[in-house]
């Protein structure tokens, strides 16, 4: 299976992206095209550059070399108002949910609507409550503060915030980290449901294989700064790639020698 499939007019594409921190090369020329409406999951061990890849894709970090395209347009160096306009197409669920402690749940969910899109508060609240309902949270949660919620509920609120403005691309950063298996599965189901409902493109990073199998149409494996394998989720068990085999079976021995 090729690590770089040929995709005609991808929604999102990272081309030849390189990034290093000091002498440590994190990404050594990564190519990741993602087709419109597809869900790609990037797996890999800790410290292999998954988070950096996601941050570069969403524009939180600039690559040392290479480019990022959205709808065929080079957005690598986009800043200021242009970047903010582009960001309005994006939604992101952060690993720790990243909810603002000083705002209520509905204000968190409606943050983009009230602060960037100029939506009036009553309408924003209505839309936030509807988004909360879609992730299985009742309207009485809307008035609570993030500190009053469990980890699983915070993830749901983060997901509601990511989808409330109906983005074209959603990024998921380790969506099940810190959750018990049941809550993790609930979040995975909600992700699949929301991505399908919106018909959007999704890029996730995780090292939770159960999550990767559930939310991804395709899986790519990042190791040592390179995409070493990419293919449909259904073929992950028969990849024939020693890195993938070692990773999905969680073996200590094999070609991946990073360790802790």
């Amino acid at each position: 299976m090729s690590a770089v499939p040929s995709i005609e007019s991808p929604k999102l594409e990272l081309k030849g992206v390189k990034k290093r921190f000091g002498s440590k090369v994190v990404l050594a020329g990564v190519d990741i095209p993602v087709a419109r409406g597809r869900s790609l999951v990037i797996i890999g061990g800790s410290g292999q550059g998954k988070s950096v890849t996601l941050k570069i894709a969403i524009g939180l970090m600039r690559p040392d070399a290479g480019k990022v395209f959205v709808d065929g347009q080079d957005v690598t160096r986009l800043g200021g108002a242009g970047r903010r306009r582009l960001s309005s197409q994006f939604g992101m669920l952060f690993q720790g949910a990243a909810l603002f402690d000083s705002l209520s749940v509905w204000e968190n969910v409606a943050f983009r609507l009230t602060n960037a899109d100029g939506v009036k508060r009553p309408e924003a609240r209505e839309r936030a409550v509807a988004a909360l309902a879609r992730v299985g949270l009742k309207s009485d949660v809307a008035a609570l503060y993030p500190g009053e919620l469990s980890g699983g509920m915070q993830k749901r609120v983060g997901l509601a915030r990511a989808v409330v403005a109906e983005p074209a691309i959603i990024f998921f950063d380790e969506p099940t980290t810190g959750l018990d298996p049941i809550n993790a599965d609930v979040i995975n189901d909600l992700i699949v449901e929301q991505v399908k409902r919106l018909g959007c493109t999704a890029v996730s990073i995780t090292h939770d294989m159960a999550s990767a199998r559930k939310i991804g149409d395709e899986i790519a494996m990042l190791n040592d700064g390179h995409i070493v394998w990419r293919g449909p989720t259904s073929q992950i068990d028969n990849s024939g790639n020693p890195y993938v085999d070692q990773f999905i079976h969680g073996r200590a021995t094999g070609p991946i020698t990073g360790g802790v």
């Binding site: 939180l60 306009r85 994006f90 992101m92 983009r112």
Partner: peptide, 18 residues
Amino acid sequence: ATEHIDALQTLSTDPFRY
């Protein structure tokens, strides 16, 4: 440290303004 500033940027909000 808790990615709130990153979150602001992904929510189309300039952290310098906010």
